[in-house]
């Protein structure tokens, strides 16, 4: 099974590619709403992409209040 650090790295890489920002500008503790400027529809889009990438289900309510990549990675890691 992959490590939490690997999961976090994959999320950052996927977010950078999808939102077309340099990977090095994204940090684990960044607020992705602010860093990426995503709205509610883009948040859903990102959620769907993460579910497909990691082959997991992420109920929306598990992500309530989650705004940084590190916590997001921990939620995904818990379902791998």
């Amino acid at each position: 099974m992959q490590t939490a650090d690997q999961t976090l790295d994959e999320i950052l890489t996927l977010a950078a590619a999808h939102f077309k920002v340099p990977r090095e500008t994204l940090g684990p503790d960044d607020d992705f709403f602010k860093t990426l400027g995503v709205d509610s529809l883009q948040t859903l889009d990102l959620l769907t992409r993460l579910e497909h990438h990691f082959h997991v289900e992420l109920p929306d309510y598990e992500l309530e209040g989650v705004s940084d990549f590190r916590t997001l990675a921990s939620r995904i890691q818990a379902r791998l």
Partner: peptide, 8 residues
Amino acid sequence: TDAQPYLP
């Protein structure tokens, strides 16, 4: 104005 207005 929340990014997740569909959440409670």
